[in-house]
């Protein structure tokens, strides 16, 4: 995820302090991985340097000074361009699982066992996500669904590969 673009996008609704940006980011997108303050301030420095945000005001308090950031027109254009650009699909052509299966066949180990172990591990993760989804709000449901559909795709590959193991063993042995 592009943290810079996400923080920029959050600024579109109005100027915010760094800590406020972090809090909103964590609430909406952070989930298991909240931002560090250091990440927020280094990102904001970069955006400032590139002219995508500007300092809207500085509050002097007892602690360190607190800058309030506002998005610039160039920043809005940048967010718009980012949103309009499709993400590159990840085809996983160099799958570790595939390597493990072929290596198992080459070394006369039980490849079906490797597939079954992986299958069980995938389903274990899918149970955790399903449970989280059932307890969570709509945002949780969408995030978990995204992960669940990917895991399901892996599982379908595992099933298909299990069904083709004999043929794969012949090809690998050549």
């Amino acid at each position: 995820m592009s943290i810079g673009h996400t923080l920029l996008g959050l600024l579109e609704s109005g100027p915010r302090h760094g800590y406020d940006l972090k809090r909103t980011f964590d609430e909406k997108f952070g989930h298991d991985r909240p931002l560090h303050y250091g990440q927020v301030y280094s990102t904001m420095s970069r955006l400032l340097k590139n002219g995508l945000v500007e300092v809207d005001g500085i509050e002097a308090g007892g602690g360190p000074e607190r800058k309030r950031y506002a998005i610039t027109d160039a920043g809005v254009t940048d967010v718009e361009r980012w949103l309009a650009t499709p993400e590159a699909p990840e085809p996983y052509l160099q799958s570790t699982l595939y390597t493990k299966v072929v290596l198992a066949l080459l070394t006369h180990r039980n490849a079906a066992d490797i597939l079954d172990t992986q299958r069980a591990e995938h389903l274990r993760m899918m149970r955790i996500l399903t449970d989280r989804k059932r307890r969570g709000d709509l945002a949780d449901q969408l995030i978990c669904d995204h992960a669940l559909f990917h895991l399901e795709a892996d599982l379908r590959w595992l099933e298909l590969t299990a069904a083709r193991l004999d043929r794969l063993a012949e090809v690998v042995a050549r």
């Binding site: 389903l123 899918m126 149970r127 399903t130 669940l148 559909f149 895991l151 399901e152 599982l155 379908r156």
Partner: peptide, 10 residues
């Protein structure tokens, strides 16, 4: 698999 994920084990 998404349906099986509602189970305790498979």
């Amino acid at each position: 698999a998404r349906v099986a994920a509602y189970s305790d084990r498979e």
